[in-house]
Design a protein around this nucleic acid. Structure first.
Lengths: 102, 102
DNA sequence: CAAGATCGCTACAGAAATTGTAGTAACGGA
DNA sequence: TCCGTTACTACAATTTCTGTAGCGATCTTG
């Protein structure tokens, strides 16, 4: 079982998930892994956050079984992670529409 | 146009959106507004965060035209906000599956 | 009219999270 | 041996968030 998330007092899965995804850089990391595996330093450079926090978030994502480290290729989404990503992919198209509206 | 988001250096809509949604409590606030409008203090109590940060996030969400204040009823999603929420609703079901897997 | 309740919201000090920079240990190849 | 690459850690400075208290406006109740 995953560690009780910091903002989630109920333990209900949706709350745990929203808490995990609502931490800074978490969504962004998942997004960066959408197409191909990335090395730690590639992620760091692409995202522009400190290695400390990248590593912390990767650890959380690994514990949540959404990301794993493939020593050959780098960090990559697990099958669970890919399922989650598929739910998020429509955001890409929608964000364009949203950007025009604001 | 929305203020350049803190973690988004590119300005690409998807990055701006991911940055906005990736701030602590933002996703959770949208989630709490999924069914009906909520008063400021209702939100605060339901979420369990400080009024300072609730207010900051609400201001960001209002600026992004995802949330608005209806003086009669409280904070509610705009039509854009409802579109965004519809993209997120499958998370609820998926989170149950995910919780079983970890 | 006065007192109380409720509304959104702000002030502020202490605590926690994040940054930015530097560096470590392990491994592989020249 | 030396160099490059890997993931990752240490740590002080900075930024963000919390927890509590309270403000000013508005509405209701006595």
């Amino acid at each position: 079982m995953v560690k009780r998330a910091r903002g989630s007092r109920t333990g209900r899965p949706i709350m745990v998930l929203l808490d995990l995804l609502g931490r800074r850089w978490t969504l962004r990391i998942v997004w960066e892994l959408r197409e191909e595996p990335r090395r730690f330093r590639e992620l760091q450079e692409a995202i522009g956050a400190s290695p400390t926090i990248i590593n912390t978030r990767l650890a959380e994502l690994r514990q949540a079984r959404l990301v794993r480290l493939d020593e050959e290729a780098g960090y990559r989404l697990t099958s669970l992670g890919e399922e989650l990503l598929r739910l998020f992919l429509p955001l890409h198209v929608w964000s364009e529409k949203w950007a025009k509206a604001i």
